[in-house]
Amino acid sequence: MEDYLEKIYELIHEKGYARVSDIANSLAVQPSSVTKMLQKLDENEYVSYEKYRGIVLTARGHKMGRLMKERHAMLADFLRMLGVQEDTLQKDVEGIEHHVSPATLEALQSLVLFLQAHPDVLTSFLSFREQSSERSST
């Protein structure tokens, strides 16, 4: 559900609307799967969905979609800070965001904010990491 809410939120902010076909293409799923999930999201009051009409995020859905988007961005920022390559980064973010507790996500957010406020610490870490990798490759 979270992936769908994040994608709907993203599409509405990018294009002004979200269609079943857009969601299906973005998430690489069948339109029938999107329709089923939209019905569940509607039942749980995250979206207002009527077949052959638009998809509208409820206030609850908008809040959850925004939180999913922010969580995704924070995790991507964190992995970028650590020097993880972009092709690996997106796959890892998808895995992490669904298997980590809210408390751990909060701790990671604090760490990201700390590293942004103290770039010297991040520079020291990256230097340490590079030296460690050089030592292990010899």
Rank of each mutant, 00 (worst) to 15 (best):
Q85P: 05
E86A: 09
E86C: 01
D87C: 07
D87T: 11
D87Q: 12
D87F: 12
T88D: 08
T88V: 11
L89Q: 10
Q90A: 07
Q90N: 10
Q90D: 13
Q90Y: 11
Q90T: 14
D92G: 08
D92I: 13
D92R: 11
V93M: 02
E94M: 09
G95V: 06
I96Q: 04
I96A: 12
I96E: 04
E97W: 02
E97M: 07
E97T: 01
H99M: 05
V100N: 05
S101A: 13
S101Y: 06
S101N: 07
S101L: 12
A103L: 15
A103W: 07
T104N: 07
L105Q: 05
L105Y: 03
L105H: 02
E106W: 08
E106D: 11
A107L: 13
A107D: 14
A107P: 08
A107V: 14
L108I: 15
L108D: 07
Q109N: 13
Q109I: 08
Q109W: 13
S110R: 15
L111S: 07
L111P: 01
L111E: 03
L111R: 03
V112Q: 00
V112D: 00
V112W: 01
V112E: 00
V112I: 05
V112N: 01
F114R: 05
L115A: 00
Q116V: 02
Q116E: 15
A117V: 00
A117L: 06
H118G: 03
H118C: 10
P119Y: 04
P119C: 05
P119T: 05
D120F: 10
D120K: 12
V121W: 00
T123V: 05
T123K: 11
T123C: 02
S124R: 15
S124Y: 10
F125E: 01
F125Q: 00
L126K: 13
L126H: 01
S127R: 14
F128Q: 14
F128P: 06
R129Y: 14
R129P: 02
R129C: 06
R129T: 12
E130M: 11
E130C: 04
E130G: 06
